[in-house]
Design a protein around this nucleic acid. Structure first.
Lengths: 139, 139
DNA sequence: TCAACAGTTTAGAATTATTATAATGTAGAA
DNA sequence: TTCTACATTATAATAATTCTAAACTGTTGA
């Protein structure tokens, strides 16, 4: 749990001006012990519940992308009509529940290291992500 | 390499009417030895090169989704503004080249089986997909 | 063979997510 | 405090996808 001055430091140290919109978004994204997944839409709703000052949609997009670029958020690839982001930036994987359209973390420790026995010349690996799609047993 | 009557059988046997639009799209997608990746946009371009009869965009979407549902195409999850599809429906994985925005198959044999040591009650695994993001070594 | 129906295609409108624009506002350095 | 570069904002623009309703066409069965 960080207080505002810690968010200000965090933003400033990564070259982002600590504007009140960014601080508010930090509070919403990083104040919880638990990490979580969200879409831009989810975040807009959280903001409108958390404050009376509206933050424009464009700012929400800009801020999320800035935070992603700085490594404070990860984007999660799912077959989806919208982008999912994750406040958990540690290396981990995901279940995607196709029945409930729900995304669930898989701790990195719960996945045996993935061994890839091939490579592409001139390229280096940036990340290895596992997506496990699940569905209701009965279906 | 299948000829049209084989596509007609294939469509009919899966409960899809063999209309001329669907047959044309089959020719474009499944006539090659090599499997490939495409976006809806790519497919529309291929169609317009391959034939003088235009196929409407809505039909392309409908057909691709119908083929996906029947298991003739797979959708590939990537952080992207558009959906990627794969004519290779066998179990395999992908490299995604972030420098070139290019998608490359990884043969299933080149990935050691992924072991997940956790599960979700009431859910069964439908698929396990590995996405390896790569970039230029120099970057 | 052919009429009838259900499934398809179609053009275009509608919707949704995201990005661009340009004017206004503001944090931070001097 | 003032200035300047960076941010925010509302709105428009764009792009991908889905919806709609009318026209069309395989297929079935008489």
């Amino acid at each position: 749990m960080l207080n505002n001055s810690q968010y200000i430091d965090k933003l400033r140290s990564s070259g982002l001006r600590p504007t009140k919109q960014r601080i508010k978004i930090c509070e919403i994204l990083f104040n919880s012990q638990k990490t979580f997944h969200f879409t831009i839409n989810d975040l807009v709703e959280k903001i409108s519940k958390a404050t009376n000052d509206k933050i424009s949609l464009a700012t929400v997009y800009n801020t999320v992308h800035a935070f992603k670029k700085k490594g404070y958020l990860k984007e999660i690839p799912i077959n989806s009509d919208q982008s999912y982001f994750d406040t958990n930036t540690s290396h981990h994987h995901h279940f995607y529940d196709e029945s409930q359209k729900d995304l669930i973390d898989i701790d990195d420790a719960d996945v045996e290291p993935v061994k890839i026995n091939t490579k592409i010349p001139g390229k280096k690996i940036r990340s290895v992500e596992v997506l496990v799609k699940v569905e209701d047993i009965k279906s």
